[in-house]
């Protein structure tokens, strides 16, 4: 397994990953197959998705490498290859394959990936829960009023047409804003990875870490609000 991540994970987690083979009771530390009896081992509940793939906890991931690893692990865990094995092994294979599929789905998508990272780092992020963006909320609620008005209107009438034009313009502006937020997130990903690579334990590094996490949380939240109103717009005006 990849051990690059160890500097950022706590000792307790490492201890949890160390356990005994369910079959021959020899020690296995994070490996998927027992060294001695070659039986498949269940992926521990404590293993995060990054570790599951043998990746460090970074936000920029090469999709090709991720896919290759996913295919490799699928070949190791998929129930198709456990048809002739014991019931225990079949059940481990089922569980591992399901975990692997969730992990791939999460890490493949940059937004789900950063959401997941924020969950992992939750200890410090919960305290930095940002204040709601009141202006954005007002905008959304106002836009919703216009949407209601449009829904109630005769779409073919002049007023209906006019509302439609207004809403289309709003949609464009919002989509542009969403793109800006995504560019901003990309930058934050890079900053996060650089900070992790440096691996400093200074108080300055710690406050930089908190700042990045907080900013990611805020940008993500705002993006979600914008995205859900865009979805509503698209559903209404097509």
């Amino acid at each position: 397994m990849d051990h690059q991540h160890t500097h950022s994970s706590n000792p307790r987690e490492l201890q949890m990953a160390r356990s005994m083979c369910w079959h021959c009771q020899s020690e296995v530390s994070g490996e998927y197959f027992c060294d001695r009896c070659v039986k498949v081992q269940p992926v521990s509940k404590e293993t995060d998705y990054f570790t599951c793939f043998g990746f460090p906890r970074r936000l920029t991931i090469d999709p090709g490498k991720l896919e290759a690893k996913f295919y490799e692990l699928s070949r190791a865990f998929h129930p198709d290859f456990y048809q002739n094995k014991s019931e225990t092994e079949q059940s481990i294979s089922f569980g591992n394959a399901a975990t692997l599929n969730s992990a791939y789905r999460t890490l493949r998508d940059p937004i789900q990936r950063v959401e997941y990272l924020l969950d992992l780092e939750a200890g410090s992020v919960k305290e930095i829960r940002n204040s709601p963006p009141a202006d954005l909320f007002e905008e959304i609620l106002e836009l919703q009023d216009t949407l209601d008005e449009y829904r109630a209107s005769d779409r073919a009438s002049d007023a209906g047409q006019q509302l439609r034009t207004t809403l289309q313009a709003e949609q464009q502006t919002l989509e542009e804003r969403k793109r800006d937020m995504e560019t901003q997130l990309q930058q934050l990903f890079t900053d996060w990875d650089l900070l992790q690579d440096r691996g400093e334990a200074t108080s300055q590094a710690r406050s930089e870490r908190d700042r990045l996490l907080k900013q990611m949380r805020e940008t993500l939240s705002n993006r979600t609000y914008v995205k859900s109103i865009i979805n509503d717009l698209v559903a209404t005006i097509g």
Binding site: P132, F137, T224, Y225
Partner: peptide, 13 residues
């Protein structure tokens, strides 16, 4: 009171 649920994008005033 203006609040939002960042998980799902709901906004409540």
């Amino acid at each position: 009171g203006m609040v939002g649920a960042p998980e799902c994008g709901d906004v409540m005033k």
